[in-house]
Amino acid sequence: MPRTKGQFEEMRNATREKIQSAAIQLFATRGFGSTNVQDIADTAGISVGLLYRHFKTKDQLFNELVAFAIEGLKRNIALFESDQSPTKLLTQFVDEVYTDMINGEELAHLLILINQSLLAGTATDSKQHEEILQINITLLDSTAQLIRRGQQLGEFRSGDAKEMALLFYGSIQGLAQIKILLKSSFVMPSPSTLTAFLLKERM
């Protein structure tokens, strides 16, 4: 029987996901400049011609991956700016990071990808580069505000909220890089370890 329109769309989406997964891995581990389209196609297990049906250029592929990462950062900002308990919000976020880090490499690759686009301006146009920078600043500010709320409620340890937010994200970013370097030897710190300098111990 001939395939239905829905089946073709499912196959198309599956191929795009394979391409994106391969590209994230290669961009993060080799860098944008050292990764070519053939490498991505080989890792995805498809032909270069099929890859070009989905993405016209390597730059377009990179920029779509960065756009995907940006949407994730926006969701984190919205979460932290909600009126839920600061402890609950932070714990939920750290639990998700922990789960993603122990179950695969996608989060680590995405974090490295964002850094590449910021530090090297890799493949991103000036508008997207500015957007990533502003979103990172907003995320830091919303996290610092979350920490201040937690401190006012007596749930978080005292200290400069902005410095604590910087240390928090610096730790996660550093762990992402170490995970990619150490591979199977990497051991992800527990959620309680990640939040020990932020949350007060419960009596």
Rank of each mutant, 00 (worst) to 15 (best):
H54D: 06
T29V: 03
L26N: 13
I24G: 00
I40G: 02
L26I: 15
G33M: 11
N63E: 14
L73M: 10
A67K: 06
L61P: 01
Q38Y: 11
K88T: 09
T91K: 03
G72I: 04
L73K: 01
Y98I: 02
R30W: 12
E17P: 02
F32D: 01
R75L: 03
V48Y: 01
Q20G: 03
T29W: 01
T15K: 14
R12Y: 11
Q38S: 11
T87R: 13
T99F: 05
I46C: 10
E71H: 12
K74V: 14
E71Q: 15
F93W: 12
L50I: 10
D95T: 04
T99M: 04
G72N: 07
A78M: 10
L51M: 13
L79Y: 00
N36P: 10
I102L: 13
V94T: 11
R30N: 12
M101T: 00
L89H: 00
A69G: 14
L107W: 01
I40V: 15
L65R: 10
L61S: 05
S34R: 15
D42E: 15
F27A: 13
F62N: 01
V37T: 15
Q20I: 13
R16C: 08
R53T: 06
E71S: 15
G33Q: 14
E64A: 05
T99E: 07
K18G: 07
I102F: 13
T99Q: 13
E17T: 15
D42T: 13
I24S: 00
P86C: 07
L26Q: 14
D100Y: 05
Q84F: 06
Q38C: 05
L107N: 01
L89E: 02
A44F: 03
F62E: 00
N36E: 15
R75F: 01
S85D: 10
N36R: 08
F68N: 07
N76Y: 10
F93E: 06
M101P: 03
V48H: 01
E105C: 01
F55S: 09
